[in-house]
Design a protein around this nucleic acid. Structure first.
Lengths: 283, 283
DNA sequence: GGATGTCATCAGCGTTGCTTATCGAAGGTG
DNA sequence: CACCTTCGATAAGCAACGCTGATGACATCC
């Protein structure tokens, strides 16, 4: 169960090829073959079928573990190195699309920051692994409840904002005139499935799937009647098309949280302080 | 960042001794010394002070990561092996003290089960690492909210019960006559700090710390006025001493959840089904 | 049916990682 | 205060590991 073996295993599984994995990892095909053989001998189970190369049930199970495991390993390394490293002059901020709001825009200094927008579930990983110095994630939560984030590493979490939620409906929708909606009333409706933007609602029936982080496109789809979207009210109202109806029940808010590694260097610490400043949403 | 190196590192840190760690791990002292040197060379940082042996700040940081990391590694191994292994005839059930209730007692077969009571935070680890076949954990939660468990591994979580909470007060306490209490009213009170039993309330002032999993002793302490305890109402009422006052606010319940690995063998699957049977608390 | 590509296997070899042995430093003791 | 014990660092030696390169077995494509 050497991490090296695990790493080549996930590479082989992802590429469905021993040779391709060898090329990617800078090994010979022979080495990769031996890696997999070593893993299989260690666990006394076949992990991959050959020709075609695909994970067996046991291999699939191992794959589920391998991702978080390797992530945590990188996170540990990055965290310790960060203790000794000099504070970076230029800092990188990871943010999910809906976390980019007025608070962030106000806190951002004129220069020296790179903003990297990514799907919400990639933000904790990016901060933990040291790819980014700070992270902003968003998601639905009960009022003043912290978000349920995957704990890839011991990160410092601070709530920095909560907003009302609203549903974006096409203009002609029967509920378009209402002052508020309950999610139950829309249980049979078709929803846009946009995991990269956030607010994943498991229960709802998925209509169109939208992959990407561009909100304008998503709002346009909703306004055109391809499915409903749940968004922060401010965002839904600014969409410019469609009708925005606040969510009455269940009592959910759109919550934004700041993720920081345990050690914060100068410029990053200053930005974190500005982002969290005056926030009554501390977790 | 080889797990072997990490393992000896935590052993050395725990025992504060290279030689003792070597004895425990079955290495020579020399090997342990080289392990630590390799880690420090890899991270280019001193991790331990020698004479006395203690973690440096960087070492302490690494220790925080190492525990969960090694746990996940064991969990991955156990999970894959469980796929292939024959179903155990005798199964082991991990449970936190407050998870031992009527539901469990009713579901337990006459024979073939070992019940292992342990602190709540040890239960997920025990199930993930394969030390136990099933786990029952309890904790406070908002009604119908899942518990916040450390995700050591992808476990199957099922809610199996929610109960009202109550505060156990000594007989002469000013609130002893009330029909219900708010936690806010007791903010200045002294609470028993019993992490092994569960229901850890961070905010409250800690009075006596109680280490152990015996509920009777804990209730006796509370009744004798050494501090308040928050317990499931049923447990608090059965204490036989002290006064039990239901909790009115915040709206919290005592929730019990069943933890199962992704793969369940015959006897364990049967017990899991009985434990979860008819439960309306599914997460 | 030859050509191509894939994964498994084998031999060879450099490196790693362990052990044994020894040293210097610190702490305890008569 | 000298002596002894204990602890961790270091050096040398050696076996095992883990890589490469070559070759084999097998399937697919033209």
């Amino acid at each position: 169960m050497d991490p090296h073996l695990l790493r080549t295993f996930v590479a082989v599984a992802r590429l469905s090829s021993f040779s391709a994995a060898a090329r990617e990892l800078g090994y010979t095909q022979s080495a990769v073959s031996q890696h997999i053989a070593a893993l299989e001998a260690d666990l006394r189970t076949e992990l991959l079928t050959r020709r075609p190369v695909a994970p067996t049930p046991a291999g699939a199970r191992l794959l589920e573990h391998a991702g978080p495991l390797l992530l945590r390993l990188d996170a540990a390394r990055a965290d310790v190195l960060r203790l000794a490293a000099a504070p970076p002059g230029r800092i990188t901020l990871a943010a999910s699309p809906l976390a980019v709001g007025p608070r962030l825009l106000a806190a951002l200094p004129a220069t020296g920051v790179t903003l990297r927008v990514m799907p919400p579930d990639a933000v904790p990983a990016a901060v933990a692994a040291g790819d980014c110095d700070l992270g902003l994630v968003d998601g639905p939560a009960a009022p003043s409840d912290p978000l349920r984030l995957p704990d890839v590493a011991p990160l410092r979490v601070t709530g920095v904002g909560e907003e009302e939620l609203a549903v974006l409906l096409p203009a002609g929708h029967p509920f378009a005139g209402r002052g508020a909606v309950r999610l139950d009333d829309l249980a049979d409706a078709r929803w846009l499935d946009a995991p990269d933007v956030g607010l994943p609602l498991t229960a709802a029936r998925r209509a169109l799937r939208y992959e990407g982080t561009d909100l304008r496109a998503l709002c346009a789809l909703a306004a055109a009647g391809h499915g409903l979207v749940l968004l922060p009210r401010r965002v839904a109202e600014a969409a410019g098309a469609g009708v925005c109806v606040p969510l009455a029940a269940p009592r959910l808010v759109h919550r934004t949280e700041l993720l920081a590694p345990a050690t914060l260097s100068g410029a990053a610490a200053a930005l974190a302080a500005r982002l969290a400043a005056g926030s009554p949403y501390d977790s």
